[in-house]
Design a binder for these strands. Structure first.
Lengths: 205, 205
DNA sequence: TAAATTAGCGTACAAATGTACGCTCAACTT
DNA sequence: AAGTTGAGCGTACATTTGTACGCTAATTTA
């Protein structure tokens, strides 16, 4: 890659990073202005356009990138689970760790999920869908579930996890422990319930 | 109430209604400007201050008012359920109806739940907490659950319902049917799972 | 080496925003 | 009847925003 393209990529990264860094509990992506991001990245406002058509395009990039990061981290965590122990417990712990080390990635996903732009909502939904279908396949194979039951179960699990994530963002480290425990309990409810429903259906037919 | 106070109340209502009416899938509360709301309500921008300290105060009013509306409607629906039939099914159907007739009340709750103002998040959480504790008490009495199990169960149920609500806002009428069915299935999972977990605990002790 | 490309800059402008200030006049109080 | 209050208005202003336009200088291509 030429010197020129390299420098351009570097600036682009500076923009993305600047935007991520400005996110916080008090600052959502949609409240960031183009000028603020450019300022933080150390370039002139008008130079922004050399990299993105508008703020929307930057945001979508962030959602995609964030979702990818999350999935990679969760996948690594899952490898730990293969060593043995409760899958649910280990997954929840991994999730909390991921959340703690990437709070802003979470913020943008959670916020824009109920956001004002259809494109954003769709993008976030796509990321969540990745999680759901990975999990559904896993459950289908592992617990021998009916496809549609596996799907409903996976969806419920993911929703509960993401919601707990949203709450966790506002909590202190110590309170997160209790939240994680409650979450584990809820996930077990869903898993146990799905199993019971499946058995009932099998007996009936 | 005097003529004067009456007129003031009327204008205040006009402001609240104006704000609610401007909400849509493309427009969140936080994206509304004071001037826009005043314009829609038919008053001068500066007159806004006669009624609210700032937009934040207006928003909190809307959250409180919206939450109240929702609870009242759900309570009416619950009376229908007492006539017999599946509590879950009837509750879900009621919920969908409520959602369809008050989409904007939902939007503000859903969006500000993950919003940028701590006061807003707390207010929404308070509203959701109402639902959870009402449901937890119901379950505790009805199904004879342990308090903490009842709590975890109620929370899971409410979260699943609200999440489905968020998705439903983006769907066409016909697609909502399928979503409702899936939601019912998930709620049954939780209920069945909670029951099973409780039994297991009782046997163990 | 000469020409073409382009990342980044500075200037500029129209639009919109929140809100300070002071006025009016109808409603209320005394 | 006289005096007080306050809801609503218009004017005004500083600030911030997105973005159009044209320039520069370094890199790339020919």
């Amino acid at each position: 890659m030429g010197v020129r393209a390299q420098q351009k990529e570097k600036t682009r990264r500076a923009l993305v990073d600047a935007a991520f860094n400005q996110l916080s509990a008090e600052r959502s992506f949609s409240s960031l202005s183009l000028r603020e991001v450019a300022r933080e990245a150390g370039i002139a406002p008008t130079s922004f356009y050399r990299h993105f058509k508008d703020m929307n395009e930057l945001g979508l990039t962030m959602v995609d990138e964030g979702g990818l990061t999350l999935r990679q981290m969760m996948r690594k965590g899952r490898q730990r689970a293969e060593a043995g122990g409760s899958v649910i417990r280990i997954s929840v712990d991994t999730f909390i760790e991921v959340l703690e080390s990437n709070p802003n990635v979470f913020r943008i996903l959670l916020h824009e999920r109920s956001g004002t732009s259809a494109a954003f909502r769709a993008a976030v939904e796509r990321e969540i869908e990745h999680f759901i279908s990975e999990l559904a396949h896993y459950t289908e194979a592992q617990a021998n579930r009916t496809p549609d039951l596996a799907r409903a179960q996976a969806e419920a699990l993911v929703i509960l996890v993401f919601n707990a994530g949203a709450s966790a963002l506002d909590l202190k480290r110590s309170e997160r422990k209790a939240l994680a425990d409650q979450l584990v309990l809820q996930l077990r409810m869903v898993a146990t319930g799905a199993e019971a429903l499946q058995q009932k259906m099998e007996n009936r037919s």
